[in-house]
């Protein structure tokens, strides 16, 4: 575990050494505000809540997080540095975890930079700050789950574009699983228990529940177990590739 922190540090620093990170954050902030105020019709709704802000996060993460995660292993493999990394005295698990946490921290920074929207709403009205806090935590946990999918697909291919596409598709399945439009559509023929099971694996189901201001262990467990599952899978894939 001795090289866990160096990797974490190197990775996190790496984000801010290239313009990519800033471009990502700028796009994230812009689209967030655009969706909240324009698509979410914030002023027309006349509600001092941040529901119209958080509700877009799954859809934003769907595209933005694969863009962040696609290079994580793919780049190392393309440039051959993966051999270097894995020959260092470091366990595979530590390397996966360090890369994941660095990326997660980066997302956290992007999320923190959205706080001015909260200040805006607090200035215009009296939002329930407990709900806002819980929603942030929920959004952050969900971002971790998205990220773990991206890291997994990044380990699959040398090609970043391929990684991006696969990650997008897998994430989309998880988003749609909890999308009530989809669930309503299938409700005509699928048995109820199946629908319930599928929607319980959907990001939107858990996100909506947390956005109300309720922290349930079930939601937290869902995100954490999913993240752990994908990271483990990533480790297995790398292990298999290393042996080849």
């Amino acid at each position: 575990m001795s090289s866990f922190y160096p990797i974490l540090k190197r990775e996190l620093k790496g984000y801010f050494a290239t313009p990519v990170a800033y471009v990502f954050i700028v796009i994230f902030l812009f689209i967030n505000a655009l969706f909240t105020f324009q698509l979410g019709r914030f002023f027309e709704m006349n509600q001092a809540t941040l529901t119209g802000f958080f509700m877009w996060h799954p859809w934003l993460y769907l595209f933005l997080i694969p863009a962040v995660s696609m290079r994580l292993w793919a780049e190392e493999r393309k440039s051959g540095t993966i051999e270097l990394l894995l020959t260092q005295p470091v366990t595979l698990a530590a390397a996966v975890l360090a890369k994941f946490l660095a990326a997660w921290a980066f997302i956290a920074i992007a999320l923190i930079l959205t706080l001015p929207i909260v200040f805006t709403v607090a200035w215009l009205g009296d939002p329930d700050l407990g709900v806002v806090f819980v929603s942030y935590v929920g959004s952050f946990l969900m971002a971790g789950a998205f990220l773990s999918i991206g890291i997994f697909t990044s380990a699959l291919s040398k090609d970043q574009a391929v990684s991006f596409i696969i990650s997008l598709v897998i994430s989309l399945i998880f988003v749609l699983a909890g999308f009530d439009v989809i669930i309503d559509f299938f409700s005509a023929w699928a048995p109820e228990w199946l629908l319930a099971a599928v929607s319980s694996m959907g990001f939107l189901t858990h996100h909506m529940s947390i956005m109300k201001g309720i922290v349930s262990f079930q939601d937290v467990l869902f995100y954490l177990s999913l993240t752990a599952g994908w990271l483990t899978a990533c480790g297995f894939v790398l292990e298999a590739k290393k042996a080849q």
Binding site: G130, V134, G213, I214, V215, S216, Q218, L221, F222, S225
Partner: peptide, 16 residues
């Protein structure tokens, strides 16, 4: 998740 949904379904904190 299945076990969690059975055993932990009632464990929640209302933060409103």
């Amino acid at each position: 998740n299945l076990i969690g949904s059975i055993t932990l379904s009632g464990v929640k904190f209302d933060m409103t």
